[in-house]
C-alpha cells in the first residue's frame, strides 16, 4: 500500500503550507470585498441579525477568494513570466494547477450555497454571477483580448456592495446599482494612473494594456472621461436612500479634488511628467485610494447616524 500524496523528494520550500492555499484567495483584494460588502449590508434599510450579517460578509469574501483561486489557475502561465506575480503559489511550485482548480470550484459552490442558506437566493445568484463574470468573462475571455480589460475586471470587483445590499433586503435598488457604479467607474482611473508611472511587464505576458496598445496620451484621455463619469454617479449616489450629509459633503470635496487631478493629468505630456518624476500621477493614485475608502466609509457613517437616530 502506498500513500500517493507522499513524495519524499519534496522539500520544505516546495510543499504547500496552509498560507499558500490562503494566498490563492488573493487576501489583499479580499479586504476591499469585505469592506464594501459590509457597507452594502449595513447601509440597507433592513436590519439583519448580526450573526447572519457576519456570515453573509464571510461567504461573499470566500466567493471573491474562490474567483481569485480560479483566476490563478487559469493565469498561471502569465503569472510565471511577470515579476509581480511570479511568487504566487502556482508559479512558485507550491500548489499544482489542478489543486487550485479544485480548491476554487469547491469554495465557489460552498460560498454560493451557504450565502443562499444564510440570507436569500438573489444574493447567492449575484455572487455566482460575480464569480462567473470574473473567471469566465474577464479571466478566460477578455483579459488577453482587449485593453479595456481593466474596465471589465473592475465590474467584477464592484459587485460586493450590491450583494451585501441584496443579502439584507432581497432586492436590487437604485442605491445598490449606484454603489456598484462607484467601484466600477473608480477602477479604470485608479489603475491607469498607476500604469502611467509604474513600468509593468504585462507585455511579456501578452496582456494588452491601454498604455501600450493605444499610447499614454489615450490613457490620459481615458482617465479624464472615466473620472467625469465617476463624479456624476458618485454624487448621484448621495441622493438615494444611502446618501446623507456626511456622504454628500465627502463626495463633493473628493470628486472636486479627483476631477482636478484628472484634468491635471490630461493637460500634461510625457516630458512634463518625466521632469517631475510623475508627481501629479502619483498624487492622483494616492488620492484614488482615499477616494474609495472615504466614499464607502461616509455611507457607513450616515447609516450609523440614521440607525442611532441622529439623522
Amino acid at each position: 500500500m502506498s500513500d500517493a500524496s507522499f513524495d519524499p523528494t519534496l522539500t520544505d520550500t516546495q510543499e504547500a503550507q496552509f498560507g499558500d492555499y490562503f494566498a490563492l484567495l488573493k487576501p489583499r483584494v479580499m479586504t476591499l470585498v469585505v469592506f464594501t460588502a459590509f457597507v452594502g449590508l449595513l447601509a440597507a434599510p433592513v436590519s439583519v441579525h448580526p450573526f447572519l450579517g457576519f456570515c453573509a460578509v464571510l461567504f461573499i469574501a470566500l466567493g471573491g477568494g474562490a474567483s481569485g483561486a480560479l483566476n490563478m489557475w487559469y493565469d498561471s502561465d502569465i503569472d510565471a513570466v511577470m515579476k509581480r506575480t511570479a511568487k504566487r503559489p502556482i508559479p512558485a511550485g507550491k500548489v499544482t494547477r489542478e489543486e487550485a482548480l479544485a480548491f476554487g470550484l469547491t469554495l465557489s459552490v460552498f460560498a454560493v450555497v451557504f450565502l443562499g442558506l444564510a440570507t436569500n437566493w438573489l444574493a447567492a445568484g449575484l455572487l455566482a454571477f460575480t464569480i462567473f463574470f470574473y473567471v469566465v468573462v474577464y479571466t478566460m475571455w477578455l483579459k488577453r483580448l482587449t485593453p479595456q480589460n481593466i474596465v471589465i475586471g473592475g465590474a467584477a470587483g464592484a459587485f460586493p456592495p450590491m450583494i451585501g445590499w441584496a443579502a439584507a433586503t432581497g432586492e436590487i435598488s437604485t442605491a445598490s446599482v449606484l454603489m456598484f457604479c462607484l467601484t466600477f467607474l473608480w477602477t479604470p482611473p485608479h489603475f491607469w494612473a498607476l500604469a502611467l508611472f509604474v513600468r509593468m511587464d504585462y507585455d511579456n505576458a501578452t496582456v494588452p494594456m491601454l498604455t501600450v496598445t493605444h499610447g499614454r496620451r489615450a490613457t490620459r484621455n481615458h482617465i479624464l472621461v472615466y473620472t467625469v463619469l465617476l463624479a456624476i454617479f458618485a454624487i448621484g449616489l448621495g441622493f438615494t436612500q444611502v446618501g446623507g450629509p456626511v456622504y454628500l459633503a465627502t463626495a463633493v470635496v473628493l470628486n472636486a479634488l479627483f476631477l482636478k487631478g484628472a484634468v491635471d493629468i490630461w493637460r500634461r505630456d510625457e516630458a512634463a511628467s518625466e521632469a517631475d518624476n510623475f508627481k501629479v500621477e502619483k498624487s492622483f493614485f494616492k488620492l484614488s485610494l482615499l477616494y474609495l475608502f472615504a466614499h464607502f466609509g461616509a455611507i457607513l457613517v450616515d447609516a450609523g447616524l440614521t440607525r442611532f437616530g441622529v439623522l
Partner: peptide
C-alpha cells in the same frame, strides 16, 4: 518528518 512539514496544513484544516 512529514508530519512536521505538513503541520501548518493540518492545523489550518
Amino acid at each position: 518528518e512529514l508530519h512536521k512539514r505538513r503541520r501548518s496544513r493540518n492545523v489550518g484544516l
